[in-house]
């Protein structure tokens, strides 16, 4: 099944979780088991791009309309270089990006041992920031997991939190500064 990349039109300066919701809504009806956001920095202004692994049929024209920007499907013919194609490649190779949807995500909404996080999902490793993570260490997901692709792996970065648990480094609602600038 193919990988696709896209350059969605996104609303102003909103938080990442809000952007994720907009993207997933646009993907509604598309069978995709692995969805990432990427940042394309080759232009004068950084652009958020999207990659998705599609497991069924996809109406590319409809999806492009829903996302408000171009959609490229990677195939053997080799798509010409573009932000959308770069995103698709980065997602396929797990080179970079933050993962918005991945296999096993729905099983990880509570507090789980690190070993379980890896066992039941596509996450390859739980990486502690400044701390070693033992298989039994508890990861409090708070229902929001955004593992990152790095060098071909899907990593969940976690850090020490209140109550002797680990929490993902990316929170769903980080502090919004000064009312939106």
């Amino acid at each position: 099944m193919p990988w696709l990349g896209a350059v969605p039109a996104l609303p102003g300066e909103h938080g990442a979780a809000h952007v994720d919701a907009v993207l997933l809504e646009a993907l509604d009806g598309v069978a995709a088991d692995f969805v990432c956001t990427h940042v394309d920095r080759l232009g004068p202004v950084a652009v958020t791009t999207l990659s998705a692994h599609v497991t069924g049929e996809v109406d590319v024209a409809r999806l492009a309309e829903a996302l408000g920007g171009p959609v490229v499907v990677l195939d053997d013919s080799g798509a010409p270089d573009s932000p959308a194609a770069r995103a698709a490649t980065a997602g396929r190779d797990r080179a970079d990006g933050r993962c918005v949807r991945f296999p096993g995500q729905s099983a990880l909404t509570g507090t789980h041992p690190a070993a379980e996080v890896v066992a039941v999902s596509a996450i390859d490793r739980v990486v502690g920031i400044g701390v070693a993570v033992a298989p039994a260490d508890r990861v409090e997901t708070l229902g929001f997991l955004r593992p990152v692709c790095r060098g071909g792996e899907l990593l969940l970065l976690v850090e020490p939190a209140v109550g002797g648990v680990l929490r993902p480094a990316e929170a769903e609602s980080p502090h919004e500064c000064c009312g939106g600038h």
């Binding site: 950084a46 652009v47 920031i129 500064c177």
Partner: peptide
């Protein structure tokens, strides 16, 4: 410090959380 953010599209890519620091 209300320092609870993660990288966004305008963040410098070299400033990434890793196993050693955030």
């Amino acid at each position: 410090g209300l320092y609870d953010a993660s990288p966004n599209q305008d963040s410098f890519p070299g400033f990434a959380p890793t196993a050693t620091e955030n």
